[in-house]
Design a protein around this nucleic acid. Sequence first.
RNA 1: GCCCGCUUGGCUCAGUGGUAGAGCACUCGCUUCACACGCGAGGGGUCAGUGGUUCGAAUCCACUAGCGGGCACCA
Length: 896
Amino acid sequence: MELSKTYDPKQAEQHHYERWEHQGYFAPEINRDPKAPVFSIVIPPPNVTGSLHMGHALQHTMMDVLTRYKRMCGYRTLWLPGMDHAGISTQLMVTRELKKERLTRHDLGREKFVERVWKWRAESGGQITTQMRREGASVDWSRERFTMDEDLSRAVREAFVHLYEKGLIYRGNRIVNWCPNDQTVLSDLEVQKDPQAGKLYYLQYPVKDSDLRLTVATTRPETMLGDTAVAVNPADERYGTLVGATLSLPLTNREIPVVADTFVDPEFGTGAVKVTPAHDPNDYEMGLRHNLAQIVVINQHARMTEAAGPEFAGLDRYAAREKVIEKFSELGLLEEVLDYEFSISKCERCKTVIEPLISTQWFCRMELLRDKALELLAREQKPQFVPAVPYEKIYYNWLESLRDWTISRQLWWGHQIPAWYTKDGEVIVARSFEQAREQAGTEDLTQDPDVLDTWFSSALWPFSTLGWPEETPDLKTFYPTSVLVTARDIIFLWVSRMVMMGLEFMGREPFADVFVTGTVLDSHGQRMSKTKGNGVDPLEVFDKYGVDATRLTLASVGSTDTRWNEKQVESYRNFANKIWNAARFCLLNSVGATVDPNILVTKDPDLALHDRWIISRLNKTARDVRQSLAGYDFHEAVQTLYHFFWDDFCDWYIELSKTAVTAEEATSQRITARSRLLTVLEQALRMLHPFMPYITEELWQRLPLAPEKLLHPAYEGASPAIMLAAYPESDETLIDEEAEWEMQAIIDLISRARNIRSEMNIKPSERVKLLVGAKDERLRAVFLSSSDQIARLVRTSELSIKEQLTAPRASARAVLVGGAEIAIPLEGLIDFELERKRLSRERDKLQAETAKLEAQLANPQFVERAPAEKVNELRERIVDLAQRSARLVKTLEALR
RNA sequence: GCCCGCUUGGCUCAGUGGUAGAGCACUCGCUUCACACGCGAGGGGUCAGUGGUUCGAAUCCACUAGCGGGCACCA
């Protein structure tokens, strides 16, 4: 069962997931402790049309790290997966399919079309669930939900009716954002503003019974056909006399008034604004204020209506624009045309220019819901955003200026609005057709054809997925959830709405914390996007470097935007290989040994220094990683683990253990040393597991261990897996600062000796004589007790440790922290000039440092005002530095 | 227009009042019996600029510049 020299991620990624899933490890039921604390996350449901991208991989990594970590800590843990029906995207997807068969959705009719969507979902929807398994995501598939499931749909109807009965949902005729391409209304959040180079047209409107003309400026001349007034600022002296006058609207036979409205900015354009209440949100408001008619001249297809006049009816809005300009020019009423940059509203999805239209839609009043969310934030600081800056403020500001939410959509795929109309046009809102029939007293009802905004059902996700409106055990156990992990672009669309709906329907916040991840940008700092084609496919990265290495890379992104850097993944791939080979070494020397956590909890004074040291390091690492994860500092946690494993464990502990572990004779010491090494490795694997589930499981299964003893007590009786092992705890009493100090002295000594070897160009194969002088008794004792280790790692032929250093003149020397000195005699080999230069450089560095510190100490204000502790620290450092540079000076003199 | 963030070695990023860090890249040396996806040693930064607060600023404050983000308006 020997391990290969190189870690093969594909091999390790093959079987473990299936086993984890089938053993039920991901379900909270695996936890048998009735008193176990609860940890729950609901996944931000990916679109059913979606395929895994880097953003998902990033979020999923963090959610999985938290979930696996909490599970190993003994929490009753649920990470609930699911998908979103994604109204428009999915409908478009299926519409495109139909197009290939030369069909439109209207050819099929609503019922058949919806059937077709379900069929599409069954056959090709939800690819992402397979991809998530590849990621290692430990979600409970037995609780997978889809927003269009019957029970979630029921929750949607329940919520709708409740809000309607409370007066928070209403049907109204208002100006809305209309996408002429998708043929549906959109909420303000689904509209994106793009800067665009355009023109500003100055049009002249003749004043009735006068030679005067009033000039208005507009970017949309075609809407003039629907003008019902011109507005000026009441304070604008230029137009004072014209207020109340009548204008003859060109190209029509209408007459329109000049009205005064403070909305008008006298500075802009001519200070006179054409007012088109039916086709501009501001004009709509102004129209209401002045009781102006709304003349609809553009229809849902962005074509001119009959009301635009026979010459224009049927023209596309842009063709109509050309024609209006042409006519104005002919009439001599076109004053000028200026280049003008402005931002234009576009459909976020298809980038079609939005047409503001007056339309009857369903809206949700937000004030009451919003106030509850604001109150929660003010009173309980919930949800707690991480990082708090800037998200808490962004969230707060947005809530404050919230407007009504347009919740109806003119689509077929989605939750059809539970409202029915009688023949007389009476509106019946009910939980079902049966209820509506009872209420109406007739069967002759027509259901509203519209569906709800997809985000309406998403807003209910944290409780609808747990069974609401039923009071299910899951709902009681897992709501509120622990944390929401998401990208920043859906804080308004989703996060805030979940908070509001959670408070309304559950009376409690849906989650305690919101962790907002950073964004993975491309290598040039651009956002990855499908249209730009600059996205990196996580699945390809998995193939090339392994899932675990990718996860480490993504976890390191944390909450800051980071450019994609393949080198980073490569370095974590190397790390995985390092882990593999460290385990390989441990296993190659494991005969007779076994993993035994008890071996690491004794504070036996007879333990070797490196053993005391690694136990201390291990406990510190567990402490630090736990602390980092508690604050969602994934980056820090990864760094801590990386350096513990590579630097402490591989570079030093394994090296220092070699003598004992690879001893020829099968003594009990050898077994103990081997067991200790294996046990440290096993603890490290556990700590790494939430980040690197595959390699840790693969190796853990190969270790000589009694698995049932290592499981967290909550999982007693379960078939063993590292993911059910207890996450290492930190025992403060095992943190041994003395051992760390002593070990640091050894590391320092070895490093300085190696430095001399390297600088003096001594071949690695050549053994040297190492002389050590340490006045400090404690230091000397430390060196003496580790002399075999020092000799081996420095590759000495002879090692002498004494109080005083006596070395031949022809030696290379160094002065260590603490004042110890080392020398390597180099009879015939030393280049005195080189050595003098080396030592002088060192001396200059020390002296410069000393001078800096002395200057600081010479400042009376520093001594007076700085904390005594800092002043003492500085004094001690100066003493050490002075001592060391004095030794160097002496050494240099001897070389003269 | 309003609000916010970022600027640290060649690159990608940590750190955040008291001795500048990592990975990669670079230089030198190594088939040292786990690993060349490796081992050992090393070079490289006045922490964007200016001013202020402080005994002390890369870290706090103000301003400037560059980059990025959010919101509002845009007739």
